[in-house]
């Protein structure tokens, strides 16, 4: 790792904060996609006649 100078704390925290937020955003997007897809599959399994178009 390179030397970041006297303000290393700020740089590291800036990158860490952005990384954590982006990770949370990606995670939430994926979780939302999965759970919605699962609920859709469940509902379509329960009402196959209506879902088939």
């Amino acid at each position: 790792m390179i030397d970041l100078g006297p303000h290393a704390v700020f740089i590291v925290w800036a990158y860490l904060g952005v990384a954590m937020t982006v990770a949370a955003l990606v995670g939430w997007t994926l979780y939302d996609a999965r759970s919605t897809a699962r609920r859709l599959a469940e509902l379509e399994a329960r009402a196959p006649r209506r879902a088939a178009r």
Partner: peptide, 14 residues
């Protein structure tokens, strides 16, 4: 997120 939203609307409709 748009794909998820489309699916969510289908869930709500069903």
């Amino acid at each position: 997120a748009m794909h998820t939203e489309v699916k969510r609307r289908r869930v709500m409709g069903l």
